[in-house]
Design a binder for these strands. Structure first.
Lengths: 136, 136
DNA sequence: TTGGTATTGATAATCATTGTCAATAAGCGG
DNA sequence: CCGCTTATTGACAATGATTATCAATACCAA
């Protein structure tokens, strides 16, 4: 295996993890950086990007890419179990959802097409109750 | 309805549509622009971006956003029926697939969470036969 | 404590995409 | 067929998110 060494435990990483733990919604790296700054942290923007990126790789946080290409991060609630999201495209609220049998189905389907090493993305977006009203 | 006026029929749009019709795989706006240039077309890059964007909005072409935030376009094979893709993350090959009952399921699930105006993204990626070998 | 090495952070660099705006061309009315 | 109004075009600047640079700094194993 070519697993990465091991991240060092630094003040900034701790602060970032802490911020992630406090708010449970999806936010961009820049937004998390703002949050930290408001909490009088001095973490650099680049560091936030790097930390979120590495946390996402190791599966410690969820990452989704919006239609406009922005990457949003949020703490991962379900242990290390794979899951998906139902997200409000207006306010950003998100709920983790369960997609029964999707994994198995996807793997099998892919196999019939000769594909392997399957990965997938299932994102469901809509308007939450609040925003549906506001949009009227 | 606030439907857009109606796109004018221009030489550049025709050329772009033509290129789309020739190759059936997913390519970025820049790549399509290159294709056109090689065919001695003089279309501008911005024009390609605009055309693909508008075609995607009207559902005449498929658009997917990669993990790195790039938007890829390709001609839409299935009439105006909604569909999904199985894509090779290495060579970009893609096949349209069918996700039985997913639509209905998604809509219902969303409703139970108070969400409306549901939209969704289902992308399955893997390694196609060719690339699986090459990666060994 | 100390040295080797990750990590940090300010800033410059990338890169896809969008905005600008004068020049051009669709397509309608006559 | 002929203007005319207005969408479209294209060269280029501008944006905005993300990544690279690189010297200074902080982990942490010995």
């Amino acid at each position: 295996m070519t697993s990465k060494p091991k991240p060092r435990q630094t003040r900034q990483r701790a602060e970032i993890l802490s911020a992630l733990a406090t708010a449970g919604d999806f936010r961009s790296a820049q937004q998390w950086h703002d949050v930290l700054r408001h909490e009088s942290s001095t973490v650099g923007l680049a560091t936030v990007y790097r930390a979120l990126q590495s946390l996402a790789e190791s599966g410690e946080v969820d990452a989704v890419v919006t239609d406009s290409g922005e990457t949003l991060y949020r703490r991962c609630e379900a242990g290390d179990e794979h899951h998906h999201h139902l997200r409000c495209r207006r306010c950003g609220a998100a709920e983790e959802i369960d997609v029964p049998d999707f994994e198995a189905w996807a793997t099998q389907l892919a196999a019939t097409h000769g594909y392997s090493s399957i990965d997938h993305t299932v994102e469901i977006t809509g308007l939450c109750g609040e925003c549906a009203k506001a949009t009227n």
